[in-house]
Write a protein that binds this DNA or RNA. Structure first.
Length: 303
DNA sequence: TTCCAGGCTGCCT
DNA sequence: AGGCAGCCTGGA
């Protein structure tokens, strides 16, 4: 579909929602979810295992099919974003990050896909995590109209780890395979996680192969929607040490997560996502400048 | 070519 | 409890 005809397409077959304080592009490209593909002026993906086309037009969110409640819930339009952001400590680097991507929201994504994609994420750039997600969906997922859905735990449990390696997972193949088997065989119940408090849920997640502190907090934040979770990766370690040196410089890195939760509070996950997205986008901009200087024209689509 | 990415793990002190 | 090397793969 041509980008210019998208609006009329949505009007005839889909619907729209008022979505103030929301930015679809920042939300989908901030590294929290990996299956949405740009399509014209919008994005093609799926919600609740059903294909969706979404597009932002000013303060309106256009979508098809016509399921406004599903869309509003997925994109967390119920969050009082101005209220959440105004509660953060006043700090220049955080305020710059908030100003850089106004409307970035933490979405509600399905738990299993979130867990599985973050198990495939260690030492990988976002572009490659997306590649792995696509490869797994095409090989082992089921098709729903124009999209491939993420394979279920049972489907991945049937795949020998060698097969997953061929899909580009490398040393992550055994981890994902083992975790898929635990869940498919009923030895680990994902839904129970919802009944636990944050520390209990983190502890339970970390019993799964391939899940350490960083992946666990990504799952807590993006899959279980615990907004106080605070994933700490190399980016966050760097940011915290550089921007909050009085607290974090010289502190044991194992203490970073509880320290950050103390600093940013019950919506710390939002602070983390804004800081991360800002730092990563700044680096990408710097790389574009760098390549233009050296005369190369290659600009990474993602990483 | 060589290096290093949005870590986890087991083994060491 | 903290420090450290190894691990697969693809992109710069």
């Amino acid at each position: 579909m041509a980008a210019s005809s998208a609006a009329s397409f949505f009007q005839s077959r889909g619907r729209s929602l008022s979505a103030p304080d929301f930015d679809l592009k920042h939300t989908l490209e901030s590294g929290q979810v990996f299956h949405w593909e740009q399509k014209g002026a919008g994005y093609l993906g799926y919600i609740d295992r059903q294909p969706f086309l979404v597009e932002q037009c000013g303060e309106r969110l256009l979508f098809t099919p016509n399921q406004p409640e599903t869309v509003a819930r997925y994109f967390s339009l119920d969050h009082d974003l101005p209220g959440i952001l105004s509660g953060f400590p006043k700090h220049p680097s955080l305020e710059a990050a908030l100003a850089f991507a106004p409307g970035l929201r933490i979405i509600r994504q399905p738990l299993w896909e979130c867990l599985a994609t973050f198990i495939t994420s260690p030492m990988k750039q976002v572009a490659h995590i997306r590649q792995i997600s696509l490869a797994l969906r095409q090989r082992y997922g089921t098709r729903a109209g124009p999209v491939f859905l993420y394979p279920t735990p049972a489907a991945l449990a049937r795949v020998p780890p060698a097969g997953l390696r061929r899909a580009g997972l490398g040393f992550r193949a055994e981890k994902l395979s083992a975790t898929a088997r635990l869940i498919a065989e009923g030895k680990f119940d994902l839904e129970t996680l919802r009944t636990l408090d944050l520390d209990q849920a983190e502890e339970a997640l970390r019993t799964l192969p391939g899940v350490g502190p960083k992946v666990a907090h990504c799952v807590l934040l993006f899959g279980l929607h615990r907004l106080e979770a605070f994933p700490v990766d190399v980016w966050m370690r760097r940011i915290l040490k550089e921007q909050f040196p009085r607290r974090f410089k010289g502190a044991a890195e194992g203490r970073f997560i509880p320290m950050a939760r103390g600093l940013f509070g019950v919506y710390g996950g939002y602070a983390q996502q804004y800081l991360f997205h800002h730092a990563r986008s700044k680096k990408r901009a710097a790389m574009v400048t760098e390549t233009s200087k050296t005369g190369k024209v290659t600009v990474g689509k993602d990483g």
